[in-house]
Write a protein that binds this DNA or RNA. Structure first.
Lengths: 254, 254
DNA sequence: CATTGTGAAGTGATTCACAGCA
DNA sequence: TGCTGTGAATCACTTCACAATG
């Protein structure tokens, strides 16, 4: 029970609910900050305050990793930080292969938080010949055509799809064929993959639309067209279409 | 509920569950594609296939907007697309002010999907004098110092924080003071805001850590390999941007 | 005695399964 | 006949509230 008595091995790393898992990195981040600030212990209430999460939830989340707190005192910052790292599997580095060197791919490649958090960029690829060979932060852009070779050579843990929607599925297929089974998708399209592959998506347009919805609600909402919305006709002038397939972007994979 | 009986106002635009709301943009996108492909009607099963969502869920989601399907047939693509647009409040444009013109801010400013989806970038600001005045796609980078003036002049619906973590809170405070009440945060830090302000965050490090976790699980466990069914996952959240606040501290017990 | 860890209750989302309708 | 719309059942997550305890 005593936090400092870690006989290594055992922790109920399995069974972590998805909702909890999604918050662990958040705790991990603030614990790192507390560690920098030389704070020795932290209570669930303080952690709640810092992460914007309810304190009962913090305690329940942490209890999924094991009993690492001390009643009446709180949690040892360094120790808890370590346990979360272990629970998240951050005790060894992960290699990341990024496909698509548009602004988004470049933002990722030069993300300073990467290295410090145990993520190593093993490649940044693009199909635009004009981009190939140029450097982005610490990495040099490679040719998308070499995806298979690079994947074979580096066995990346995670593949990032940062291409236009039109090429996303094909890039994804190639990553999967090359043995990548964790994919982070930034393209605004649904990727289809075999069951053993995990895809997470980050959809900027989606986030904005959700914000726009709430903004409208708050505004008191002007009830658009009360009675008569013509059925089965005319999507009026609004273009709310999905133009990203139109690819007005720079060249990425083909 | 007979579909044609919309006597009063319009649709039950209120009461939309958060989980449903998060999927509406997804339906909206594929409906746009179907519209392009001149597909006239679509069933919940087809929509499910295209979005990676279970068909019962599709039907329940759509039922929150109203009864817009036809039994035995399906949904009229154009009409449903319109209803979702309306439900999401996309019938009029939203203006977006982006603060931080690093790779991420630039990626957002030049995001092709923006304009076509009704989002108008009214400003892209940075504090680096070397950046101010340069153009990014259709917009010219302005000085962060002008945030208040610009916000007053344009009353942006949404503010985007794409700065390093260290300045995120102060930028956020300034946006809020200037009257912005919907904020999209890309900085890897928790923003504190008044109750009437909505913040959504996109946290890249978080997504990668979750992927790393599952990768680790897969590696250390019997691959519960099932059939090769298409798979689509949802997510939201990611954070990135250059300069992290130091703060990484991975593991290492005390 | 402050704070954890957790059963139990509460809330919300998903899935089932089928009645109702075009 | 085929597909929607939806009650009812199930599952997952959150919150409460308090006994356990260093």
């Amino acid at each position: 029970m005593s936090p400092q008595s870690h006989t290594s091995g055992s922790a109920p790393t399995r069974d972590i609910p998805a909702a909890t898992l999604a918050r662990l990195p958040l705790y991990h981040r603030v614990l790192g900050q507390l560690l920098d600030a030389k704070v020795a212990t932290v209570s669930s209430a303080e952690l709640a305050e810092l992460t914007g999460v309810n304190s009962a939830k913090v305690r329940k989340d942490l209890s999924h990793l094991g009993s690492y707190g001390v009643r009446g005192v709180g949690y040892d910052v360094a120790y808890l930080n370590y346990q979360i790292s272990r629970g998240l599997g951050l005790t060894h580095d992960s290699s990341v292969l990024i496909v698509g060197a548009g602004n988004l791919g470049r933002a990722l490649a030069s993300y300073a938080g990467f290295a410090s958090r145990g993520f190593r960029v093993v490649g940044l690829l693009d199909s635009d010949p004009g981009q190939v060979g140029t450097r982005v932060g610490p990495v040099t852009i490679g040719d998308s055509a070499t995806l298979e070779d690079l994947a074979a050579a580096t066995s990346p843990d995670i593949g990032v799809v940062a291409t236009p929607a039109a090429s996303a599925q094909s890039v994804c297929d190639r990553l999967v064929s090359a043995g990548v089974s964790s994919i982070l998708n930034f393209a605004p399209t649904v990727l289809t993959v075999p069951a053993h592959v995990e895809v997470r998506k980050v959809d900027l347009g989606l986030e904005l639309q959700i914000l726009a919805f709430h903004a409208q609600q708050r505004r008191g909402e002007a009830p658009t067209n009360g009675a008569g919305v013509p059925h089965a006709v005319d999507v009026s002038g609004l273009d709310l279409r999905d133009a990203e397939t139109g690819t007005s972007r720079r060249g990425v994979p083909a």
